[in-house]
Design a protein around this nucleic acid. Structure first.
Length: 803
DNA sequence: CAGTCCGTTATT
DNA sequence: ATAACGGACTGT
């Protein structure tokens, strides 16, 4: 028996299946989708069986045998195997990367190099000493000792061997349990033969005989039976108890027990939307629905109902949220409704926790997964519905290989399972809305807020006028008044600082120098904590200089607005307000999001001040004022989605106000009040924005009128980078059809990151059937010729940003 | 001619 | 990706 194996080596010539012989004793165990360990070259690597066959085109004597099988049950289902092929082709990645991305990190191998002692007599003393009494030592030990050179010699003459050990990144957690295995008579006999002093043992045996349960943890025995370590041990010695390891799951969610699941009376709109979805589910149609519901229109309740319907039919559901650790309320609602039928998957979990949640899905112990992007690969066997909440969010697009979009994967899986997809948003991506308008997706609308609250009133404040009137603070007069009023009423306020593409930098007031990162073409960001300057691209850190590095002037200070600075200003303006700050600095530790949100929800603060991360999911009844301090910073990014992103953000943020019975107010401060993205967010109407933005997209040839593919070329040397970018661009121009626009090469907006100069080429096309094929050819040229020159070329189909 | 450096080559 | 191989160069 022969198996085809995709080996865990990401390199161009290895990106194909390799044949291996299956040793007879393993023949009954091999299955497509199982992981194996195989010899590869002179090392041992992990791989995936992608096919099982009897014949091979190769000379059978050249084939090696599989070393071992890791999974008795395949970890990649038949469906996901097919999906991995599609992903490989669609995102132009290595097949192994497509396979790995579908599994939790715990199942990925990590490799360790060891040196094994073969002939001690051949080694010199210093080298031999490294081994001490061991036969195998880590390669690192030798590296640290500086005897690598020696080792090479010994490797060649065979006195030591190099071996690779494959390690798993996490294991199932186990707990030691004590089982009553002996029969009653035996136990009674033992009880009789106890000596008089063995009071504790006697008590324990009697207690055990009273129990229905037959297995206990040491803690249970100590707490419930008041046993102690030595008496338990004695019973183990007497064969009354037996020690066994039992697999347990790591506990992750902490539900408040007082909380109750709330079911809401559905509105007519909700019922109508749900009827459509359920119809599609019941008739096994793979319809993609775009659920366009304004903020507070009760989309989540529809998701819950659709999933319920799916569970009733014995099927499973995937619920994707943009970044779940930011929306604990969402998870909680699902847990409340579906209890332990829910698995949770997000970046806040440890490798082991993710592994446990994944196994619950894989074993069919849960029916629903609520999770971030990667949860789209949940190994469910019979999906009833797939939901993407806030479908316009760019977090659904993975920014490194494989560069997939969860929406595309969702639609692929829905075709496989013949089940509907629901894309939900108050501000759909233009692509999705356009598809819905064309009838490719089925559009469902929720125009009313579920509890019939009025939408908040939105005021746009022109900050230029404020400046003219001599107000140089970050708060306009209007916003400051509103804040004061709400503080008096004891209502809550959310202040939003739009930080994307804009942050505090350090500037010399004499010569105008801005302190920049030495490795990247980007100014350093000022961080109050520790008076540090940090580069947000490469992570470089340095202390704030006391003198200008250029002119040595001492008039150097930070500019721009960070949350810390706003916090100080709030303290000045509203000295009695209690402020909670939520940004990268205050949410570093695990669970800090939840903690801050809970504090705010409990009313422990009057003002929640934060960045992008507070735009989503906040749902507290007492929030009646939302202030956007600087709306236009996202607007001036050199990205075709800048207006869309701004409008979405403004709408999302505004939606945080007045979600319950109290009326909400929103103030948007901006220097460009006339821009349509700002102007139209006043009315909070999506449709007019969509129409206007579509005109712009059409005029400049951007999605959804054209598809985009972004090709980036980087190199340490500017000239080389530019030269090869030109080569790539010209090659594409020659090889792609004449209607396709190949733009560039141009220097990237951030022209240098980590000392590598960056150039890019943008491909715009409406129809290009040969695109993938041509790009594969370009990749081949790159990998066989350009790579050795230090060029890095990346291709991003449907990029989420072209910055 | 042994030792070292570095680009080439094959991986089932 | 990675380790082994082989050719060129260095120093004895």
């Amino acid at each position: 028996m022969i198996v085809e194996v995709i080996v865990d080596v990401s390199a161009y010539p290895i990106d194909r299946p390799f044949d291996y012989i299956v040793p007879e004793e393993l023949e009954t165990l091999v299955e497509r989708g199982s992981r194996v360990h195989v010899p590869f070259g002179n090392r041992k690597v992990q791989g995936f069986i992608t096919d099982v066959k009897e014949q091979t085109d190769l000379d059978i004597s050249k084939l090696k045998e599989i070393h071992s099988i890791i999974d008795v049950e395949p970890v990649v289902t038949e469906e996901l195997l097919q999906l991995s092929k599609w992903l490989t082709n669609k995102t132009l990645c290595y097949e192994i990367d497509a396979l790995q991305v579908m599994l939790p990190a715990a199942l990925r191998a990590s490799y360790k190099k060891n040196i094994k002692l073969i002939d001690p007599s051949a080694l010199d003393e210093a080298f031999l000493a490294l081994f001490y009494k061991k036969e195998v030592i880590s390669y690192d030990v030798i590296e640290k000792s500086g005897l690598l050179r020696q080792m090479k010699k010994y490797l060649i003459d065979g006195s030591v061997h190099l071996e690779t050990v494959i390690k798993q990144q996490a294991k199932a957690k186990t707990i030691l349990k004590y089982h009553v295995t002996a029969d009653k008579e035996f136990i009674l006999e033992q009880l009789k033969s106890l000596t008089k002093q063995a009071v504790k043992q006697k008590e324990l045996i009697e207690w055990l005989l009273d129990q229905e349960q037959t297995s206990f943890t040491m803690n249970e025995l100590m707490d419930l039976a008041k046993a102690n370590n030595s008496s338990v041990k004695a019973l183990v010695d007497k064969n009354i108890l037996e020690k066994r390891n039992a697999e347990i799951y790591r506990e992750i969610t902490t539900l408040d027990h007082q909380e109750k699941d709330q079911r809401f009376q559905l509105t007519d709109e909700q019922i109508s939307a749900l009827t459509n979805i359920n119809h599609s589910q019941n008739h096994a149609e793979n319809t993609t629905f775009l659920l366009h519901g304004i903020t507070g229109s009760g989309k989540t309740e529809i998701y819950l109902n659709a999933i319920e319907n799916s569970i009733l039919k014995g099927k499973q559901a995937i619920m994707l949220v943009p970044e779940i650790s930011l929306t604990p309320q969402m998870t909680r609602r699902f847990k409340l409704r579906f209890g332990d039928q829910v698995a949770v998957m997000h970046s806040g979990l440890s490798i082991g926790e993710k592994y446990d949640e994944w196994r619950k899905i894989w074993r069919g112990e849960v029916k629903v997964v609520v999770g971030a992007r990667s949860a789209i690969f949940a190994p469910f066997k019979d999906l009833g519905v797939i939901i993407l909440d806030e479908e316009h969010e760019s977090t659904y697009k993975q920014e490194d290989n494989p560069r997939y979009h969860a929406r595309d994967v969702a639609i692929w899986r829905s075709e496989f399972h013949k089940c509907p997809v629901i894309l939900g948003s108050a501000t759909p991506s233009l692509e999705s809305y356009a598809r819905a308008s064309k009838g490719v997706y089925s559009l469902l609308k929720l125009k009313m807020r579920a509890k019939e609250q009025a939408l908040p009133t939105v005021n746009v404040v022109d900050m230029r006028a404020e400046l003219k009137n001599g107000n140089r603070s970050m708060f306009s007069v209007d916003l400051a008044d509103a804040v004061r009023e709400k503080l008096e009423k004891k209502e809550q306020i959310v202040l939003f600082l739009n930080k994307r593409g804009f942050s505090s930098f350090v500037l010399c007031r004499d010569c105008g120098t801005v302190v920049e990162c030495k490795q990247c073409d980007i100014s350093l960001t000022y961080h109050r904590a520790g008076e540090q300057l940090k580069c947000h691209y490469c992570g470089h850190e340095e202390p704030v200089p006391s003198k200008c590095p250029e002119c040595e002037s001492e008039h150097i200070r930070f500019f721009g607005t960070g949350t810390q600075k706003v916090e100080e200003e709030i303290a000045k303006l509203f000295p009695f307000a209690r402020v909670l700050r939520m940004d990268v600095d205050t949410t570093k530790t695990k669970g800090s999001h939840e903690r801050i949100l809970k504090q705010f929800g409990d009313g422990d603060a009057d003002i929640l001040l934060g960045t992008q991360m507070i735009a989503k999911g906040l749902d507290f009844p007492n929030i009646t004022l939302v202030g956007v301090l600087n709306a236009d910073t996202t607007l001036h990014l050199a990205d075709f989605r800048a207006a869309e992103k701004t409008f979405q953000l403004m709408t999302q943020v505004s939606g945080r106000a007045g979600r319950h019975d109290k009326e909400g107010q929103v103030y948007i401060q901006t220097y460009t009040p006339e821009h349509y993205a700002i102007e139209l967010s006043k009315s909070q109407l999506y449709e007019p924005f969509y129409q206007k933005e579509m005109l712009v997209r059409k005029q400049y040839g951007y999605p959804p009128f054209y598809y985009l593919t972004l090709v980036q070329v980087t190199h340490e040397n500017v000239m080389v980078a530019s030269e090869y970018a030109k080569l790539a661009t010209n090659w594409l121009r020659v090889n792609l059809s004449s209607e396709t626009l190949v733009i560039g090469p141009t220097a990237c907006a951030i022209s240098k990151i980590q000392n590598r100069y960056r150039y890019q080429c943008l491909i715009k096309y409406k129809k290009e059937p040969l695109l993938i094929e041509k790009l594969q050819q370009l990749i081949k040229i790159y990998r066989t010729e350009w790579m050795k020159k230090g060029i890095i070329l990346t291709i991003d189909l449907d990029p989420s940003t072209i910055l």
